Simulated assay, not measured.
Amino acid sequence: MSTADDLPVVSTLDEVARLVERHRGLYVRWSRGPATDLDRVSSTDELTGVPMPGLSANPLDVESWWEDRSRELWVARRLYDYAHLPHEKGPGVRPWVLTGRETGRGPDNEPLVADVEPLCWIAGAVIDAAKAEVARQEREWGTLRRGSR
Rank of each mutant, 00 (worst) to 15 (best):
S2D: 14
S2F: 08
S2W: 11
A4E: 15
D6P: 01
P8T: 00
P8M: 02
P8F: 03
V9E: 12
V9S: 05
V9F: 02
V9L: 11
V10M: 13
S11E: 11
S11I: 05
S11A: 06
E15S: 10
A17Q: 03
R18V: 09
L19H: 07
R24I: 04
R24P: 05
G25S: 02
G25E: 02
L26H: 03
L26P: 07
L26I: 03
Y27C: 00
Y27I: 00
Y27A: 00
V28T: 02
W30R: 00
W30G: 00
R32S: 14
R32L: 01
A35K: 08
D37Y: 01
D37M: 08
L38K: 10
L38H: 08
L38Q: 06
V41A: 14
S42G: 09
S43I: 01
T44L: 05
D45I: 00
D45Q: 08
E46Q: 12
L47M: 13
V50G: 02
P51T: 03
L55Y: 01
L55P: 06
A57T: 01
E63N: 01
E63H: 07
W66M: 04
W66C: 03
E67R: 15
D68K: 07
S70E: 00
R71W: 06
R71Q: 00
V75F: 11
V75G: 07
V75H: 13
V75S: 08
A76Q: 13
A76N: 11
R77D: 05
L79C: 08
L79G: 10
Y80W: 14
Y80E: 09
Y80F: 15
Y82V: 00
A83N: 07
H84Q: 09
H87L: 00
H87V: 03
K89S: 12
P91Y: 08
P91R: 15
R94H: 15
P95G: 05
W96A: 01
L98H: 07
L98S: 11
G100L: 02
R101Q: 11
R101K: 13
R101H: 11
R101C: 06
E102W: 02
T103F: 09
G104A: 08
G104W: 12
G104K: 12
R105Y: 13
R105S: 11
D108S: 09
N109K: 06
E110M: 00
P111Q: 07
P111H: 09
V113G: 05
E117V: 12
L119V: 12
C120S: 14
W121D: 14
G124E: 14
G124Q: 13
G124S: 12
V126L: 08
A132R: 15
R136L: 13
R136P: 10
Q137L: 15
Q137G: 09
E138S: 15
E138V: 12
E138P: 13
W141Y: 15
T143A: 07
R145W: 13
R145A: 14
R145C: 02
R146F: 03
G147Q: 10
S148N: 06
S148Q: 08
